[in-house]
Amino acid sequence: MIKKIHLIVFFALGLIVFGCTETSELDEEKPTISVSYAQGFPQACAQLKRGETYTFRAKASDNLGLASYSLGIHHNFDQHTHDDQPEACEMDAVKSPDNPLTLLNTYSVEGAPLEDELTISISIPNNVDPGDYHCAFSVTDVTGWQGRTSVDIKIIE
């Protein structure tokens, strides 16, 4: 009987101390992408004029190698989402879209660099609806992990 109780106590203690973290050779790190640096564009609450051309810039990094970027712009006239930047932007009134700007671009990165800067020239057409927009960057690494960031912007006339 005593022996059995010892066994249970031992078993219970074994449970508590069991907690070894194994060192792994696998890539478990997500890539990062950010516009939070001096040349990063667009910054939170940036105002972009119709008819102008802008150079979008974001820096990405990874421990193993970057693979692809995506850059999306979609309207936020219904205020269904918000960005992950520290400052809150002033929003226009909620409205219905007529001819909103929709941009869904993807780019591959050559040579799997550990650090890279996405530099893309984007023209804002003259006929798109002005208002609040949401600009989303994302990046994958060679393993298939993804990093994202998003910025609230405004398109003005």
Partner: peptide, 12 residues
């Protein structure tokens, strides 16, 4: 369901 390195319409 394997996450690849590619994008389609900005989605992985």
């Amino acid at each position: 369901l394997n996450p690849t390195t590619e994008y389609y319409e900005t989605l992985q």
